[in-house]
Amino acid sequence: MNLFVQGILWVLNPAHYGGVDGIDTRVGQHLLISLGVLVVASIIAIPLGYVIGHTGRGRSLAIGASGAIRALPTLGLLIIIALIVNVGLLAPFIALVVLAIPSILAGAYSGFEAVDRRAIDAARAVGMTEFQIVGRVEIPLGLPLLIGGLRTASLQVIATATLADYVGGGGLGHFIFAGVKTNDYPQMLAGSIIVILLAILSEVLFSSVQRLVIPAGVTAGRPQDVRVKSPRSRTALG
């Protein structure tokens, strides 16, 4: 455990801040990569998921593709892309987007699917256009599951962005790989601790957002269900 203390001291050491390999710089890179990946993956996956959820078409295809991506080792994907497009940020970025899409996609379409068919039927019957049904009924009611998908994706991306530096993409992986190379255990631990903190931060952030976006009418008036208390069970995944 002595090593563990050394790891924490490594994180706290002011000498390890500032400059290209400073902890602050690397945390910034890590968060920027993760955020960028989530934005790009969302731009692709949310509209696609909404189309699947609204029309009910392409669902089995989406599930199949998501299952296939689960089996695909991200490290291998990242490295083979790096070999093609060269080292740097692009390869990990692409690999992470591929990794993030299934969760967000599943969150988007399962959010729509979770909406009571009768509510949608009624919305159509009173004269809502298809766009109004999507915008006023399906999107607000599907939001908790979409955020659940984003939550999973965010966790996966922050965790996996650690591998980015293996191909020179920057981020917190630097401390781990530099530590492994020079047998500097405290440095490895320092990198690990910070990544874990970021992951937990992401979880806390998204779980609060998830609670906030549950439409008031959905929870109101129901006896407290064990499942509702734990937002995790509402999380969608593909």
């Binding site: 009768r118 009624a122 959905v218």
Partner: peptide, 15 residues
């Protein structure tokens, strides 16, 4: 929009 519609289980929007 100019015809009223009432269905079983009310079909109200829960949110």
């Amino acid at each position: 929009r100019r015809i009223g519609y009432v269905m079983q289980n009310s079909g109200l929007l829960p949110h």
